[in-house]
Deep mutational scan, measured.
Amino acid sequence: DEVTIHLGDKTIRVDGLDKELLEILKELARRGADEEELRKEIERWER
């Protein structure tokens, strides 16, 4: 499953996201997290 996250004018595509992680990323994005913060969160989950 590829998920596309839209952040204002930026788009991040991620393969096979965990549903819980997806919810966390959506919440972070709502709070104004930037792409770098979201990537760090994704990397934390992948470990």
Rank of each mutant, 00 (worst) to 15 (best):
I24D: 01
I24E: 01
E27P: 00
T11N: 11
E41K: 02
R13V: 13
V14R: 02
K19W: 11
E43I: 08
A33M: 05
L21I: 05
E23F: 13
I5F: 01
D18I: 06
R44K: 11
E46T: 13
L21P: 00
L21M: 03
L17R: 07
L25D: 00
E36P: 04
I24W: 14
E20I: 12
G16Q: 13
D34V: 05
I5C: 08
V3K: 09
A33E: 02
T11E: 11
G8R: 05
T11P: 07
E36Q: 11
T4L: 12
K10L: 15
I12S: 02
D34L: 07
E27R: 14
A29T: 07
H6K: 12
D9V: 04
D15T: 11
D34G: 13
D15G: 09
E46P: 06
L22H: 03
G16F: 09
L38G: 00
K10I: 15
R39M: 14
E37S: 08
L28P: 00
E36C: 02
V3Q: 14
W45P: 00
D9K: 05
H6Q: 15
L22K: 05
K10W: 09
E23M: 13
L21E: 01
E20C: 11
K10D: 06
K10P: 06
K40H: 05
L25G: 00
E23P: 01
I42W: 06
E20F: 09
E41V: 13
E20G: 12
K10M: 14
T4A: 10
T4M: 11
G16W: 09
A29W: 15
D1A: 12
R39G: 02
L7A: 08
K26N: 07
G16Y: 10
L7G: 04
E23I: 12
I12K: 01
I12D: 02
E27D: 10
E20S: 09
R13I: 11
I12T: 02
T4I: 14
D15L: 02
G8W: 05
I24R: 15
H6P: 08
L17C: 06
L38Y: 05
R30P: 00
L21S: 01
E23Y: 14
L25N: 00
G8K: 10
V14W: 08
I42F: 04
D9T: 06
I42S: 01
R39V: 06
I5M: 03
A33S: 04
D34T: 15
E2K: 10
E43P: 00
E35N: 05
